[in-house]
Structure formats: C-alpha cells, structure tokens
Amino acid sequence: MKPAAFDYFAPRNLDEAVALLAKHGEDGRVLAGGQSLVPTMAFRMARPAVLVDINRIEGLGHLSAQEGQLRIGALARHAHFESAVTPGPLGALLARVVRHIAHPPIRMRGTFCGSLAHADPASEWCATTLALGGTLVLRSAGADTREVAARDWFQGVFTTAIRPGEMLVEVRLPVLGPEWSCGFAEFSRRAGDFALAMAVCALRLDRGLIREASIALGGLGGRPVLALEAAATLLGQVPSAEAASAAAEAAAAHCDPHSDVHAPAEYRRDLVRAMARRALAQAGVA
C-alpha cells in the first residue's frame, strides 16, 4: 500500500502555487493537510502526477470575521475551531461540529478548506457549509478569483465545481447574530468514524417564530444535501416538539440515502429522522 510516484512542489507563495496548478491541470493536486488525500493515494485510488504542497505558503491560515463573514483560509486546520473562532452561534456551532471530525491528530493537520475540496459525502464541514449558505473562493493563475455558492459546489461523491488549475483559497460563512440558533448531530458506529448520517440546522427566530430555516444532511452517499422540505415546514412555526417531529419526518421522507456495508438505505433514513430531531433540539426546537 504505497502511493504511486509523483512530482512534489512546495511553493512559497500563492501565485507560484496557482501557476503550478495551471501548468499541470488535471494532473495536479493541492496537498494541504493530506488527511483524506494521502490514504486514497496509499490505495492508489488517487494518483496525482503532481502534488502542490501549500503548507509553506504564508498567509493562508487566516480565520477572521469581517463584514459579516467568517473567512476561513486554505490552511486553517480543523483543530483551530475547537474553541469558538467567533462569538455567537456560528463559533459555537463550529466548535461543536469539529469534535466529531476524526481524531485530534487528524484535526491538527487536516484543513477546513481541504474537506470542502475533497467533498466526502460524510464530511461534517461540507454539510455545515451547505446549511449555512457559505461561499467558496477559488483562485487560478493570473490572479483570477471566482466565487461559488456552497449549493453549487457539491456535484457528487468527491466531485465539486472546481476547475482544473483552480485552488480553493478561502471559504466564507455568514456570521450569525444572536437571533440565530444552530444544531448538529451525527451518528457513527465507532468514535471518530465517518457518520452514517448527520444533520446540521440553522434557524432565525423573530418574536418567537421561526423566520428562516436551513437544514443540511450528510453521510447519505453522493453529496451533502439541503433538506428543503423539512426547512419549509418550520417557517412561521413556534419552536416545539411537534414542529421538530414534522421537520424530521419531512427530512427522512425526502432524502435519498444509499446502502453500503455499514447500513442499508432504510436505516439511514431512520437516522436522518433521529439526527434532524436532535439537531433541531439543540437549536431550541423541542
């Protein structure tokens, strides 16, 4: 179980990195934390001819809230989120979510943006970014920048809207005010494993009623999805156990989970119901 041969570059700045990616096109891959990429290379399921190691580039590890957006740089590691990176519901949600991502040694190297770029169907960050309506910022050679909304980013298992030569340099999440409440729940069979199902929700309350709602589901195969029908059931509702149950039922009814060695689809559907209910309970809908 040894990776196939590749050329290795460790550029010192972003321009160099995107120039290398431009030059190598489909053959080039960004190496950030490597915690997902390297195992797939060990099995030779991924065999990039060129690795562009971005770990030596200054200024990519930023994590800052500006103009209502949390900007997460390409080298912001999972572990950075373990204590709230921003006050309010967003920082608290991210701190809750990150404890479910693998294990501490993985979290110290793995990056938030790397998870979005890898797009594992069971990635916590992917579902979270989708639920929060995040934006992905891509750079390519010639200082061109492109932004992609999270809902347009995920295209399938390990497949995203990235184009050859592009590098994901930042993810932006909306900073949530105190009128927002969030929840996250997932189910995995063993500590730190990929979840069989997960739910993330973000709700805005105004005078006791739910005015905005977003629920994302992950771990179902394919890509993370928005549970639109479930979110719709919540609008205008007073937070209650009945509202949570109705939303959870809708999430379960409208999702399309897959079967694998860990669980049949029908079981994942049951988990969606349970996880949606738990996530909503955390957000105060119970």
Partner: peptide
C-alpha cells in the same frame, strides 16, 4: 494500516501528534 485509521505510526511533528503514514517525508523539511 497505512491509511490513517490505527494510529500506530503516531509521532510528534513540531510538537503535534501526527500519523506519520499520512505525511510524506519531503514535507518534514
């Protein structure tokens, strides 16, 4: 396991626990 699950290869790199099967030697410069 050589795929980052078992942790047998854990070493400290610049003070952080690291699965040394998930990092390339060249990255240790």
């Amino acid at each position: 396991c050589e795929h980052g699950v078992c942790g047998a290869c854990t070493v400290l790199v610049d003070g952080q626990p690291t699965r040394s099967c998930l990092m390339f030697g060249v990255q240790a410069e």
